[in-house]
Simulated assay, not measured.
Amino acid sequence: MPTVLSISGLRVVIYPNDHRPAHVHVMGKGCEAVFNLHCPKGPPELRENYGFSAKDLGKIVDALIAHLAALCRDWRGIHGNY
């Protein structure tokens, strides 16, 4: 599972054998969240949350927005079309 981005010690992962739509898994601190990216223009949208606080989720979304183009490019490189 390739880590495509790190956010303050959290790993942003795209699984090679995963499914559409384009999304990332964010893991760390014993928590995990899944965000649909809505490539290519966003915005990322929380799909599942297992333990992150609202404050953490806000910081994660801000970082995903800042790196959206690269994340969509990474998804496409691994899976093809969004």
Results as ranks from 00 to 15, higher is better:
His19Ser: 13
Pro40Asp: 05
Arg76Phe: 05
Tyr82His: 13
Ala54Cys: 07
Gly9Glu: 07
Leu37Thr: 02
Glu48Trp: 05
Asp74Ala: 15
Tyr82Glu: 13
Pro43Asp: 09
Pro40Thr: 08
Asp18Leu: 03
Met1Cys: 06
Ser8His: 14
Ala70Phe: 07
Val12Cys: 00
Asn17Gly: 14
Tyr50Lys: 15
Glu48Asp: 12
Ser6Glu: 15
Arg73Ala: 09
Leu64Trp: 01
His23Pro: 01
Asn17Gln: 13
Gly58Cys: 04
His25Ala: 11
Arg73Phe: 11
Leu10Thr: 04
Gly42Cys: 09
Pro43Lys: 10
Asp56Tyr: 05
Lys59Pro: 00
Lys55Ala: 12
Ala70Gly: 08
Glu48Asn: 13
His79Val: 04
Ala66Lys: 13
Pro43Trp: 11
Pro21Glu: 07
Lys41Met: 08
Ile14Asp: 00
Ala63Lys: 12
Lys29Pro: 04
Val61Arg: 14
Tyr50Gln: 12
Gly30Ala: 09
Asp74Asn: 11
Pro40Arg: 04
Pro16Met: 11
Gly9Ile: 04
Ile78Gln: 02
Val13Arg: 08
Gly42Ala: 09
Ala69Gly: 13
Val61Asp: 09
Ile7Glu: 02
His25Ser: 14
Val34Gln: 03
Pro16Ala: 15
Asp18Arg: 14
Leu57Asp: 03
Ser53Gln: 10
Ile78Asn: 01
Arg76Asn: 11
Val24Lys: 01
Ile14Asn: 00
Pro40Val: 06
Leu10Pro: 03
Gly80Trp: 05
Leu68Phe: 07
Gly9Gln: 05
Gly58Glu: 05
Gly51Ile: 06
Pro16Thr: 14
His19Thr: 13
Ile60His: 03
Phe35Pro: 00
Ile65Met: 14
His79Pro: 06
Met27His: 14
Ser53Asp: 07
Tyr50Leu: 14
His67Met: 04
Tyr50Trp: 12
Leu57Ser: 01
Val24Met: 07
His25Tyr: 14
Tyr15Gln: 13
Tyr82Lys: 08
Asp62Ser: 14
Met1Gly: 13
Leu37Gly: 00
